[in-house]
Design a protein around this nucleic acid. Structure first.
Lengths: 232, 232
DNA sequence: TGGCGATGTTACAGATTTGTGACTGGGGCG
DNA sequence: CGCCCCAGTCACAAATCTGTAACATCGCCA
């Protein structure tokens, strides 16, 4: 799952701010679309199908909140991730913003670095892959069609359970899961097995992946495990 | 967000009514816990962490209203959705019931269908909120979904207790807390540990945050600590 | 300035959580 | 039937976390 090439729609009525954001995102490898009001934004959403929206809270005419709500109501756009931009001092509106369906919010002023980090996080969480698509992370490839795992072009031998575990992790990167959530998701909801069983299979999976990739599976002490490309 | 598998705590002093409700909910795919008084209810809340509570207005001993109020006061249970059950003719108390923190109320007698509908609605409203959103302050990011702390895009390694402590602070900025309040809120009300333990964990947290962010956690001499973006 | 209570810092032992290898038993398959 | 693979469990080792005490500093006030 490449982060580059994603299209981000920036909705803000102040051109300089839009520009600043656009520059930062382009440097990070995103494509930008810009709109200065909801009408413009809406037609861009329809025509260009961006991958996510950066939406200013305060907008002339229809507010950002209202627009977000509208997008979430529409079937076609309900899954579109939205990050809300709020000016400092509007923070008490945070709850309302999140309730309206935004996936995150960020307070102005913010550093470009922060913005990109948040955006990445939201995109990563929001981009589910079809079950048939091969997933690649740092040279580790899981190919559901061939039912096969490759590390740096060498086949990796994993058992059925480890395969499902890895598949789940690779389609749900970054987020931490408890042992019981993993049992639900990977084993299937109504099995009775010890939670520690998860640890053992994690162990087997790590071993199979070998030194080059085992650090992708991170222990979240007191909680469970996480698959992440970023060092812990 | 699946509606199935949610655990509902039913608090009513009349066993047949509890039973009737439990059957209805189980048919709808919920798991049920039952309690016939506030004491019992409270320990179930603590032990089982249900996803919501159906609470009878009239209860022997401590009333339902009082119990609801108590739950809303506790940090750990404040977000727990509550539906109040009131008998016919007590409707004039509706206002008081809602003021006590209930998210909805329903008048006996009610149909199972109605109950399930109301319950779904309350759960739907309540579920996406909670502590699922990332919080960002001055480049310090706490992401509950990934169970992770980042300072300027670099992962910060904190232990479980420090993580909870930071999460509490970031969701309760600016205000000062005494050591004993922190023990209540972060450790959980009924532990016996020295107050000085808080200092040690504060120290560990500050260390983990590093120079760039440790000043966010401020000492309030003679009182306790405070998380604030404004220099002290 | 000196004393005193409050807070910072560190070390450590016990508790808890996780890693790891080994064992058991089931089920498919030749 | 016998073999082999695999899932699940267990027991022990290793890693990490936790609370506490002891000592070092700090800041306030007389």
């Amino acid at each position: 799952m490449t982060t580059a090439g994603k299209r981000v729609l920036i909705v803000d009525d102040e051109a300089p701010i839009r520009e600043m954001i656009a520059v930062a995102l382009e440097m990070a490898g995103y494509e930008c679309l810009e709109a200065e009001n909801v009408q413009e934004a809406h037609s861009l959403v329809v025509d260009q199908r961006p991958d996510m929206i950066l939406l200013d809270w305060m907008l002339p005419g229809v507010s950002g909140v209202e627009f977000a709500r509208r997008l979430k109501r529409e079937e076609a756009t309900a899954e579109l991730p939205i990050i809300m931009l709020t000016a400092k001092g509007e923070e008490e509106n945070k709850v309302q913003g999140l309730e309206s369906g935004a996936d995150d919010y960020i307070t102005k002023p913010f550093s470009p670095r922060e913005l990109v980090a948040r955006l990445k996080a939201v995109l990563r969480r929001a981009t589910p892959l079809g079950v048939e698509e091969t997933i690649e992370v740092n040279g580790l490839i899981l190919d559901p069609v061939c039912h096969r795992v490759m590390a740096h072009d060498k086949a990796v031998d994993v058992g059925p359970t480890e395969y499902r575990l890895l598949q789940f992790f690779m389609t749900h990167q970054e987020r931490a899961y408890s042992r019981s959530q993993l049992l639900d998701q990977v084993w299937g909801g109504n099995v009775y097995v010890e939670e520690r069983t998860v640890d053992v299979h994690i162990r087997r999976l790590r071993k199979a992946l070998g030194q080059s990739h085992e650090q992708l599976i991170q222990t979240v002490r007191g909680t469970g495990y996480r698959f992440s490309t970023r060092a812990s």
